[in-house]
Design a protein around this nucleic acid. Structure first.
Ligand SMILES: [Mn+2]
Ligand SMILES: [Mn+2]
Ligand SMILES: [Zn+2]
Ligand SMILES: [Zn+2]
Lengths: 138, 138
DNA sequence: CACTTGACTTAGACAAAGTCTATCGTAGGA
DNA sequence: TCCTACGATAGACTTTGTCTAAGTCAAGTG
C-alpha cells in the first residue's frame, strides 16, 4: 500500500528514507513482526538505519492507527499492519505462529452490565491458544 | 487457603519460610500482584527473601496450576491466585486497575472451524479494556 | 539553485523485568 | 545428631524498550 506513504505525507510527515523502508517492510505480507524483525528487514535495504528510528516510526504508525500493537506473549510486542479490519489472534503455544481470526458475534455484548463494575468498556482483545498443524504432526 | 500449603506439601515441596510467605501473600485478597509487589509484601515478613526465590516460587506455583499468569500490559506479569474459577479480566486503560469478570457464553464456540486453520484450539484469553469509575470522575 | 531551520536520525547510555549461575544454607529423613 | 539433595541467595547477565545529546537533512523560501 503506497497508500500508506501518501497518507503519511498528508499528515505532514517528512518522507525520509528510514520511514519509507519501515513502511515498505510492514506493507509486505509479513504480518506480526517484532520491532527487531522490522529493523532487520529494514536494514537489508538501508543498512545504517538505527533501532531508535524503527521504534520511533513504529510508535508513530501506531499512534496514527496505521499499525496495531499485538502482545501475545511477554516477549516482544508485534506490529500488525492489518489495522483496518478488526480481528483477533490464534497463537500456537509451541512455535508462536500467529494467525488472524474473525470470530462470530461481538464479545463486548457477552459482558453483562453486572460484570462491568461501573467501567466504561471500550474494547476487547481475544487471544485463542492452541497447537498449529505443523507442531501437531512434528 | 492453608489448603495451598497442604497441597504443596503433598506434592513433595520442602516447606521453607520463603515459600510459606509467598503463599501467604497470594492467599490474601490482594489479587493480580506483580512479582515485585509479591516480593515487597513477602519481605515485610521475611526481610532477607531474594527476588530470585520469589520468581522461582511463583514459577513453580504457575506450573502446578495453583496460580495464573496474567499479562494485561507490556509491563510486568501479574500473578492471579484465582486459578480455580475460570474468568477473564477488565482493565482500566488509565490507572491499570484489574477486575475479574465472568462473561456469558463460551468464546471458544464463537471461533468457527473455518477460522481455526487446522489448529487444535485449547484456550482463550479475553481482556476487556475501558475506564474505571474512579478515573472517569477524576 | 542555495540557504535555512526545525524535524528527523543516530549511537549509546539507561531502565525495567526477568533469567541464570555459583555458592551457601537448611529441611527433613536416616 | 548428621547428611545431603533441594532450595535460597547475590549479583551478573539478557531482552526489550526508552531517552538524550549531537549531528543530519527534507522541504519550504527567495
Ligand atoms: Mn493480526
Ligand atoms: Mn483474575
Ligand atoms: Zn506451531
Ligand atoms: Zn482507572
Amino acid at each position: 500500500m503506497s497508500d500508506l506513504l501518501e497518507r503519511l505525507r498528508g499528515r505532514g510527515w517528512r518522507m525520509t528514507a528510514q520511514r519509507r523502508v519501515v513502511a515498505e517492510v510492514l506493507d509486505g505480507d509479513h504480518v506480526h513482526l517484532t520491532a527487531d524483525e522490522v529493523h532487520a528487514r529494514a536494514a537489508d535495504k538501508l543498512p545504517e538505519i538505527s533501532r531508535a528510528t524503527v521504534y520511533n516510526t513504529l510508535g508513530e504508525l501506531v499512534t496514527l492507527g496505521e499499525v496495531l500493537e499485538v502482545t501475545t506473549d511477554r516477549r516482544a510486542k508485534r506490529y500488525d499492519p492489518n489495522a483496518h479490519r478488526p480481528h483477533h489472534h490464534l497463537v500456537c503455544a509451541r512455535c508462536g505462529a500467529i494467525r488472524d481470526v474473525h470470530p462470530t458475534g461481538n464479545p463486548l455484548t457477552s459482558l453483562p452490565d453486572s460484570e462491568r463494575f461501573g467501567f466504561t468498556v471500550e474494547g476487547v482483545e481475544v487471544t485463542y491458544r492452541g497447537v498449529c498443524p505443523d507442531c501437531a504432526t512434528a
